[in-house]
Design a binder for these strands. Structure first.
Lengths: 146, 146
DNA sequence: TTGTTTACTTGACCCCCTCAAGTATCCGGG
DNA sequence: CCCGGATACTTGAGGGGGTCAAGTAAACAA
């Protein structure tokens, strides 16, 4: 039992820790969104809109039913954070576009995740790079469907 | 620009990566819970019940209103996964206890998070230990309220 | 042209969540 | 002892999030 190197954690411990951090970050995100009168789902949609995106693509990204997106975008549109535009190439498609205000709001939400920012600031450059590299290796396996 | 050590990631990149992994793990958890006819919230409650827990304590752990817990426990109780017991020391309090079946179901849900298990299996013991240590350092800062 | 597939919306239905109000109980000060 | 204030839980109203089934419009292929 060495003291300098942590014991190898069990998979369950790692699982639990990962879940705890994921939950904490989600709460931070939700709180920042709430500051601007948004639910976390609405903020998540706004966060995807770097460019025009068909409703269907949005549903795929969120891994949810298309009918669900209709309602979410309805509410965002009612607040003027987003607008629907007919797709010139396919008249079935409606592209969702963030308005200037929408882009502004989501930018502020990201900035206001103070808890997460603060926690990440406790890591120095080397630790950040190490963490990033480890998580980047985890990511592809996590996003597979199987 | 060295190739052997990854560049220092920006905080936004790290943020995004952390969010992606958190989301993926949450989806894996929700899918495993759904296999057993549970919503992810129901499974999360079940996961807290290592011993008897007052409704109020559960609400605090979930960071939600107490009235919310009433409904969730109602549904779990209707499925026989949980039961309410009056607290002998304080008659206002109802302790929630997982039934044998409830404990069994949540154990299986954890086992069936195959995507997450598979991804974690790609890390060797050293990497696991490093990741665990970095995340453990992040955790206290993430769970603060500020 | 006709039939199939795709994009989106609507409506029904459930769960999650909060807030406000109500009941039962505990507890501390007169 | 009793009374007022806190605490634990439940109920009901109201809204967002989620699914499924059904319907419309448009694209597409035979």
């Amino acid at each position: 039992m060495r003291a300098t190197t942590p014991e190898t954690p069990t998979k369950l411990q790692l699982l639990e820790l990962l879940a705890a951090i994921g939950t904490a970050q989600w709460r931070d995100f939700a709180a920042a969104a709430a500051h601007h009168g948004l639910t976390s789902t609405q903020a998540k949609v706004l966060a995807q809109l770097n460019g025009p995106l068909p409703m269907r693509a949005l549903a795929t990204l969120l891994v949810c039913d298309a009918s669900n997106v209709t309602g979410i975008v309805d509410r965002l549109e009612a607040r003027g954070l987003v607008r629907r535009e007919p797709d010139p190439a396919d008249r079935r498609v409606k592209n969702v576009i963030a308005t200037d205000e929408g882009r502004d709001v989501i930018r502020r939400v990201r900035e206001e995740m103070q808890t997460t920012h603060g926690a990440l600031d406790t890591l120095d450059a080397d630790d950040s790079a190490t963490l990033y590299s480890l998580l980047a290796r985890l990511r592809p396996g996590m996003e597979k469907d199987a």
